[in-house]
Design a protein around this nucleic acid. Structure first.
Lengths: 227, 227
DNA sequence: CTGGGCTATCTTGTATACAAGATATGGAAC
DNA sequence: GTTCCATATCTTGTATACAAGATAGCCCAG
């Protein structure tokens, strides 16, 4: 619980990258002891959202720029196979479920509700992985997405982004319904490459939030968020 | 450190799936307090290697059978793109490094050293991901491989497996050297499907080690094993 | 004024004591 | 003999106290 709150604050950039965290301060502000705070920090460290330096201090990780492109490459690999398998295996009801998420995104767009839009976006991709029979794929994508999500907060207010995403999502589902695997794969690939192309601009605007060298980094560590 | 030891014992099936673990007993046997033991268990729980039931007990997870096939599918998706990119980007020295791992496997085969063989196998796949410019791919594969590794302990003593694997590895590198992406991708796909085909047999021999239903499972949680 | 070293303070790592819940065991009633 | 309930014990969750190291600031010497 302290974990989830901290995580949300980090991803939302409410706590900016580079901030120093103190187990004592966090414990006091959460009204608990150091123990649960520490457990949360250890977990966040495995996700590479914070960096713990023994006997020295804990800071919120800067966004490893190189990992962003790698994360998108990985997403393409995983989600393309998800889409390909969903194309064969998706049942009527599953396709309807996927459409429902697209519809929710349309509503969120009309209502100007970015949070609802993002939530439905996650549901959309998760539903495709489910339909493919490989729900674990979405778990992995979520894991890899973590750093990208922080980045995205810097680029959110693009006008027209929501309607573009909705159109791309609709194209994917349409291809799924037609069982046209090649078209569906091409659609999701294009969808994800849209993300990729918008990467390089933002970094220079907030250089303090990023870190160039990444050799010391692995992949973020997963979180088992119960299904 | 207590984490690594526990993890190794679980993966090697030295502590069999289903075993009950007690923080107190582990603390005594490791000669430390409950705190570091607890941290290790929490980490292992995120990897889905143990299951912690609040106020009740902690047990070593059984192997979720369905996840095995899903893990191999994910490996195919990730490693195929790794190979495809390595085909374009691999430098001479990187190709040589990859060959070196194959050579080490030949030595391990001749010496009848399964541990060395497995170690070189991991190096081989990691080197390909490096050559592709996406080292994080191997981090993810390692993460997904965890459950498969336990399974593999049950199927290890297949005669001729080492030499077959070596031949398949050699085919991959040969295709990489020729910059023949399609051939290389097909080679790694075949290599991984070899694993897949040998799945169904073993389970019935040790049914207690597996669990059928997996709806409650996500993907294992990552470990940031420093590079 | 500048550089170096020492110390006070703050950091995380570990051990331990206590709290709260789940479970198994034993006994009693039917 | 069987079933149900109470209780003792064992489990993990949390709080707290202590240990050890890193760091920054200050003081002193040059």
């Amino acid at each position: 619980m302290v974990y989830e709150q901290l995580r949300a604050q980090i991803i939302s950039l409410d706590i900016p990258p580079g901030s120093a965290l103190s187990e004592n301060d966090l414990a006091k502000s959460f009204g608990v002891s150091r123990t649960p705070v520490r457990e949360a920090l250890l977990r966040l460290a495995d996700e590479m959202l914070v960096e713990i330096v023994p006997k020295s201090g804990t800071t919120v990780s800067r966004i490893p720029y190189f990992q962003l492109t790698e994360a998108i490459t990985i997403r393409k690999a995983l989600e393309e196979t998800a889409v390909r398998n969903a194309c064969e295996r998706a049942s009527r009801s599953q396709l309807t479920t996927i459409w429902a998420f697209v519809e929710r995104q349309r509503e969120a767009d009309r209502a100007g509700d970015p949070n609802g839009f993002h939530e439905a976006d996650e549901g959309f991709h998760a539903a495709i992985a489910d339909a493919a029979g490989y729900p674990g794929i979405w778990q992995l994508v979520k894991q890899v997405k973590v750093q990208v999500d922080r980045y995205r907060r810097l680029t959110l207010p693009q006008t027209g982004r929501m309607s573009r995403v909705i159109k791309e999502h609709a194209a994917i589902v349409t291809a799924l319904e037609k069982r046209d695997a090649e078209r569906a794969v091409a659609a999701i690939r294009g969808h994800l490459e849209g993300l990729e192309h918008s990467l390089p601009n933002i970094r220079d605007l907030n250089p303090d939030y990023f870190v160039e060298d990444v050799s010391a980094y692995g992949m973020p560590r997963p979180v088992h968020q119960g299904r």
